[in-house]
Design a protein around this nucleic acid. Sequence first.
DNA 1: CTGACTGCAAAATCTTTGCAAAGAC
DNA 2: GTCTTTGCAAAGATTTTGCAGTCAG
Lengths: 145, 145
Amino acid sequence: MITYEQLLEKFKAILKNNTLKFTKQRELILKFLYENDEHYTPEDIYTLLKEEHPEINIGIATVYRTLTLLEESSIASSISFGVQGKKYELGLKKHHDHLICTQCNNIIEFFDDIIEERQEEIAKKFNFQMTDHTMKIIGLCENCQ
Amino acid sequence: MITYEQLLEKFKAILKNNTLKFTKQRELILKFLYENDEHYTPEDIYTLLKEEHPEINIGIATVYRTLTLLEESSIASSISFGVQGKKYELGLKKHHDHLICTQCNNIIEFFDDIIEERQEEIAKKFNFQMTDHTMKIIGLCENCQ
DNA sequence: CTGACTGCAAAATCTTTGCAAAGAC
DNA sequence: GTCTTTGCAAAGATTTTGCAGTCAG
């Protein structure tokens, strides 16, 4: 697993390569995602950061802008919830898919080699150049049934 | 394949069972989905219906309300495009998944037994009661590469 | 008739943008 | 110093809601 220091270096390098600046706000958001291994909406992150760091001024727009930046840099990734927006997580772990409980909104991650392989094959069959893929299994988790 | 008459009967039966009324607007939207075998946003449907049937008054709110109703009745189904909203299609065909081209926005449908089966197994493994599942393969289609 | 449905416009959600002030390098 | 970034509030985009009039059964 990557340490926070390594992640930070990586992020700083990306910023430098793109003539972007390293700011307190960007760092806080990065750190938040590193330390919190779940899926958060921009609003969640905004609220929690304001709570945890009342001394730092941060605006919701910055959260959106930074999450977009992190996603473009492949540091974060998002799952989309239709009209209800997106949730973000650190995107450095191994690719995985999600089980989503409609009752408690909990998200369980899983990885399945067979599915991954089949996706490749399907893309090939359609002469499709796959850049990404997502799979969601929707339903009720063990606790909510 | 189901004929339009059969579909209409089915829809009317659903309406009757729920003490809902059969209206010109609802019929038009149903017919539109039946006749147009692609994926449409509510806005698309609204615009196209107004063009094709200038004599019928229809509001965007009705389109949204009807699509929700059709989806709840399992007559339509939707794919979500994150912030860009949802696209609807007739949901009576066999379950299938989608390849989505980021260039031309074209959507290709596919079905794969192995993936379907794996999804069942994964749900089982997590003691998850699956009610739905979606898979999207994102990338460039043959023509756009 | 009665209660459901409709269009409209206003409200609600979520996200992006313009801008002046602040901050990174 | 220069150029990017920020927070704020306003604007956008999409979807939902309240309501009075309309329509299906």
